[in-house]
Simulated assay, not measured.
Amino acid sequence: MLRVLTTACWFMATFWIPLLAALFIEKHVIVGEPIRYTAAEWSGVFPLGMYAAATCLYAEATRSHFLSFVARVTVVVAFAAGALISVGLLRSAPRSVTGK
């Protein structure tokens, strides 16, 4: 019973990752809002990191070794997203101090 519940929760979490990507595309491609740093951008990175960690533990617990690859790819994507947002933070910091 616990394995079924855990699998259902993992599938539900998996559903949210493409939704995050779709919302980003809608905001910046369809609506046309320019990509610039805001603190809210971190709300997309955190779920990616948590999903990667949860997938890694889920793969280990269920001995589903093919999911380890999914976890590794998600870690790389989360790291890249975090790095890009960190660069945006560093670029916007002088503007926020000077007010320009």
Rank of each mutant, 00 (worst) to 15 (best):
S92Q: 09
A71R: 01
A93L: 12
S64C: 15
F79G: 15
A83H: 02
F69M: 09
L67M: 14
V76S: 11
I85T: 07
A71Q: 03
A81E: 04
T74V: 13
L67D: 03
S64K: 13
V75C: 12
L90H: 07
A61W: 14
S92D: 11
I85C: 04
V75P: 00
V77I: 14
A80I: 11
A80E: 05
H65N: 13
A71E: 05
V76R: 11
R91G: 05
F69T: 10
Y58C: 03
Y58N: 06
V75T: 09
A93E: 05
S92L: 06
L84V: 07
A83D: 08
L84G: 07
L67A: 04
A83I: 03
S86N: 08
A80Y: 09
G82L: 01
A78L: 03
A83W: 09
I85W: 01
V76F: 10
A78N: 02
S86A: 11
L90M: 12
V87H: 03
V75S: 04
V77Q: 02
A80R: 08
R91L: 12
T62H: 15
R72F: 12
L89D: 01
T62I: 06
S64V: 12
A80N: 11
V70L: 05
V87L: 06
A93Y: 13
A61H: 15
F79K: 07
L67C: 07
S64N: 14
R72Q: 12
Y58T: 09
V77P: 00
S64H: 12
A93I: 06
V87A: 09
F69G: 00
L89N: 03
V77L: 09
F69I: 01
A81F: 06
I85F: 06
A61G: 13
T62M: 15
F79M: 13
V77W: 02
A81W: 06
T74H: 02
S64G: 13
A83V: 07
A81V: 01
V75W: 01
L67Q: 05
H65K: 12
V70S: 02
V87I: 10
T74D: 03
V73P: 00
S86P: 00
V75A: 04
L90V: 06
E60C: 10
V77A: 11
L89E: 10
V73N: 02
R63N: 14
L89M: 13
A59I: 08
G88N: 04
V76C: 08
Y58D: 09
V70C: 05
L67Y: 11
I85N: 04
L90W: 09
A80S: 09
A83Y: 02
E60I: 13
A83Q: 08
V76L: 07
V75N: 03
A93H: 11
A80K: 01
A78I: 07
A80C: 08
Y58R: 15
A78C: 10
L90N: 01
S86F: 04
S64Y: 12
I85K: 02
L89Y: 05
A59C: 14
S68K: 09
Y58L: 11
A81H: 03
E60R: 09
T62A: 13
A71K: 00
F69V: 02
S64W: 12
V76T: 05
F69S: 04
A61L: 12
F69N: 03
Y58V: 06
R72D: 11
V87R: 06
A59Q: 10
A81M: 06
S68R: 07
